[in-house]
Nucleic acid binder design. Structure first.
Lengths: 164, 164
DNA sequence: TCTGGTGCTGATACACTGTAACATCGCATC
DNA sequence: GATGCGATGTTACAGTGTATCAGCACCAGA
């Protein structure tokens, strides 16, 4: 399917797509939301790929064999999934990744985007959050959401460089 | 021109556009770069507005009276300006703001985007940078650039709320 | 002076991203 | 069956961004 020589430390790929789907199913049952086929398929498409996918990529993947999924529908499904924290939008790429963790509400996420292999890792840092909160308070700014995306090279690609 | 009842603490508007232009002129002279009319006009358009402007907005503003500026040209000018740190791209809005400070290279910026008035403030926080560096080092990730954008309510709009 | 190169701009075309509006369908409820 | 609601399908369109080629100014070197 895809290259596994690069080891991800969160493993949001392949087998873990089933985890994401299971989690989604549970969450929708809890909140009394509809986890429809389209939403399931969109989530699956995003979860089986460690790289961020564009809406039109997803639409293309879901289309074929007599089914045609328009980008609009994908956007609606993505809206639903992001609102419920199952998928994250990567603003710097206009693309989407499935959520690798289950984190509480209001946790600040940090996305690590590798320039070389294109994969995305997702972490959190309470220390960064704390400092950021202090900075915002000092500026008299009341935050409601934040975006923190770092571009660079992931550990796996750095390793490849050193040991080619 | 625009509403000044909301006080910005960095004041990247109106009169300060001339500052931005002067700074740009100096910087281009230092680095032996061409500060052409188009680049000047684009920077001026962005600097006279505290809200982020889209490329097509800028193109529209520069067009008229026999001049037609295509969006492509604006994008090229914006590329030049962002590469030289005179303008910043707001990823979450697909829009651009002029740089309010002169900061050294490699300083992590924090953009504060007000949901209510749409204005953007720009600050820095060495503490956040430090913590983020530690987090990235722990993850084995070598950063080359970062995006940190916070959406919420600015001090001015919070004040208006309390004293309407 | 001519000539070639370089960098900026103009212009067209096109691909990608995202939203608005309306029709339809399935489903639950009355 | 009628009604209402949410999800999807469909079309259209606006906004964002890139590729490509052509013209133009300007400078360096023959």
């Amino acid at each position: 399917m895809h290259d596994h020589s690069a080891v991800h430390d969160h493993g949001a790929c392949c087998g873990n797509a089933t985890d994401a789907l299971a989690r989604a199913e549970r969450l929708c049952a809890e909140r009394d939301l509809q986890f429809t086929r389209l939403r399931r398929d969109v989530l699956e498409a995003v979860a089986t790929e460690s790289k961020p996918l564009g809406a039109y990529d997803i639409a293309e993947r879901l289309s074929g064999q007599g089914r045609r999924v328009a980008a609009v529908s994908v956007y609606r499904a993505l809206d639903f999934l992001t609102e419920n924290g199952l998928v994250h939008r990567i603003a710097s790429r206009n693309a989407f990744v499935s959520c690798g963790h289950q984190h509480g509400e209001g946790v600040g996420l940090v996305f690590l985007i590798c320039r070389t292999c294109g994969s995305i890792d997702e972490t959190t840092s309470p220390e960064v959050d704390d400092q950021l909160d202090k900075t915002l308070a000092k500026a008299g700014f009341k935050p409601s959401s934040r975006i923190l995306e770092v571009e660079g090279e992931c550990g796996a690609c750095l390793g490849h460089e050193r040991n080619p």
